[in-house]
Design a protein around this nucleic acid. Sequence first.
DNA 1: TTAAAATACTTAGCATGCTAACTAATTTGA
DNA 2: TCAAATTAGTTAGCATGCTAAGTATTTTAA
Lengths: 156, 156
Amino acid sequence: MSTLPFHETLDLSLCGQLGRVHRACREAVSVAVAPLGFTQPRWTAMMHIHHLGEGCTQHQVANSLGIEMPSLTRTLKQLEQSDIIVRNVDSQDKRCRRIYFTEQGLADLARLKQRISEIKELLYHGLSDEQLNIIAHGLVQLEENALKLAHKEVSL
Amino acid sequence: MSTLPFHETLDLSLCGQLGRVHRACREAVSVAVAPLGFTQPRWTAMMHIHHLGEGCTQHQVANSLGIEMPSLTRTLKQLEQSDIIVRNVDSQDKRCRRIYFTEQGLADLARLKQRISEIKELLYHGLSDEQLNIIAHGLVQLEENALKLAHKEVSL
DNA sequence: TTAAAATACTTAGCATGCTAACTAATTTGA
DNA sequence: TCAAATTAGTTAGCATGCTAAGTATTTTAA
């Protein structure tokens, strides 16, 4: 990495910098959970399904992840093929598919949560809670500004 | 956006959050420079070539951008086809191709720089220099941690 | 009440990152 | 000095985001 530190290239490459950090973090977690057979889109989907609670709809998961439906469809299909989740058509509203973990999926989820809590320590090493908080809020602000600029209004 | 703010989902979705902000920023800048006909990989490449100075090699640009050569090759080919740059084989070392802007490219670059300085204001609106600095350093730290975790050593 | 709009999801295909494996040119070192 | 290693760049093809456009179902409203 001969790249300049962020603050010196802020003008030049904010987009690229964010992309780099994103790819690095994704790669780090992917390596950590690879023994369990999960890629980043899969494990994040699993965590968000867990967070929303079983029986959530695909739409809810996409919203929670902040990605579009077609991106999610692909990932959920893979999770279903791997026997991690099932997607049952809702009997009330036949447009919706409600998501549940399989027995296998629940076991994998437990191991996943364990693994993630371990690497979180390492990923945030050297960053204080206060720093993390400032970064958190800063990124939210940045995202809002960007969405406004792109003429995509922010509800909320 | 019904997604939760960053600090509430830190445990869950750091990777996804960074990806979201990255995509939002990219989209914002892309919209802003679209009238000039540039996509994010193209305009960032142009800015880094400018920063490194004409006559730089592709390798240098890839390093500066923090992306791999094949990703850059595609983008530079597009810029060459659009008559923005030329890539001349170095007479000393025939493996290298040295990059120069065309007359057209220099004109586009000038307009690009103008446009970017305008939207930078809007993108960073509401963020103090100190906040930006903390974010900058935090992201560098995060990237280092992540690269270490992924067993890719940081040569700095 | 039923035609139009909205909603949940899918499919197809693009954009831009990546790795693996290749060519060609240069450098190294036995 | 010349075979092996390194370096710059390319090509092919994967991963994961996206939009556009389609289907099926539900809701709305004239």
